[in-house]
């Protein structure tokens, strides 16, 4: 009977695996790979006034990469995304370190749960709350005015790149903590003892053992924060008041409002290209960093 079952499984392991994964894989091919390929193809066509003509050219890319407006928006997206990534990862590291090294094992999951809850509560409402907090007549300004700390509403806290960065850093904070935490958990604690036994101070042990060993987590955190922030649509619209558009807003304008889908597609492909280049760059940097420590 057991044998019958085994021949009932019949197909080779490879075939069973492929058959089993096929529903999910086919879904991803039809609804992700095919649309992405379409966008790449569209980006090479010529468009305008809602029409698409089948003239293959690189003109859209030339427009996107040399037009001053597009360049300014891409530069702003990069600055915001790098700023958010830097702030998020730097403030997240000590938290991950604290939970991994100084919290009792039985309490670790409750700390992680507390850290992840805000991430799961409506993203839209959280972004809007920052508009309410930092706005000209917002919570901070009205609060400080009513207790008499300031006489006039502060203007440097609203409608600027700094406000975008604060809002996004808050939105993506847990994203940065989790991968760093996981990499810290994997560190063999006896290595730290060895470092100290050999006469290193705690700080130097951290610098020469803990930090390099957790670098993979830091890189994962960087990528996991950088990628969604550079493509964020809501924050520039709500916090920036529509005056500080980023790549996603530019994509919307070209795809839908101007209805030049080829140009919009070229923006989308360029954004993916930038993200891919930077991701590869960080991964290579990590390799070198770890290689240099050996």
């Amino acid at each position: 009977m057991a044998k019958a079952n085994q021949s009932g499984l019949g197909r080779s392991e490879a075939a069973s695996g492929l058959l089993l994964i096929s529903p999910t894989a086919i879904y991803a091919v039809l609804l992700l790979a095919a649309p992405l390929a379409t966008v790449v193809m569209f980006s090479l066509l010529t468009g305008g006034r809602g029409q698409i003509t089948w003239d293959f050219s690189l003109q859209n890319y030339i427009d996107v990469w040399t037009g001053p407006v597009y360049r300014a928006i891409m530069l702003r997206s990069l600055i915001v995304a790098f700023g958010v990534t830097l702030v998020t990862v730097v403030i997240a590291y000590p938290i991950a370190y604290f939970v991994s090294f100084h919290v009792e094992p039985s309490k670790k999951s409750i700390w992680l749960f507390l850290i992840t809850i805000p991430f799961w509560t409506s993203y839209l409402i959280r972004v809007f709350l920052w508009k309410v907090i930092l706005g000209y007549n917002g919570v901070v300004n009205s609060g400080l005015l009513s207790i008499g700390v300031i006489d006039e509403p502060l203007q440097w806290i609203n409608y600027n790149v700094g406000a975008l960065i604060v809002t996004l850093a808050h939105a993506y904070a847990p994203f940065a903590i989790l991968p760093i935490f996981v990499s810290l958990e994997k560190i063999d604690r006896s290595l730290l003892e060895a470092g100290q036994d050999l006469g290193e101070s705690r700080l130097r042990t951290f610098w020469r053992v803990t930090l390099p060993l957790s670098m993979a987590g830091v890189i994962a955190a960087v990528l996991i924060v950088f990628i969604p922030t550079i493509g964020d649509y809501v924050t520039p619209d709500l916090i920036g008041g529509g005056k500080l558009p980023m790549i996603a807003n530019m994509m919307e304008v070209q795809m839908l409002k101007v209805n030049n889908k080829p140009l919009g597609s070229a923006i989308a492909v360029s954004a993916m290209f930038i993200v891919a280049i930077i991701a590869v760059g960080f991964v290579l940097l990590n390799r070198r960093f770890i290689g240099g420590q050996k």
Partner: peptide
């Protein structure tokens, strides 16, 4: 690892 806007637009 794809910005959601790109998934939505494509």
């Amino acid at each position: 690892v794809l910005p959601e806007m790109i998934v939505a637009m494509s």
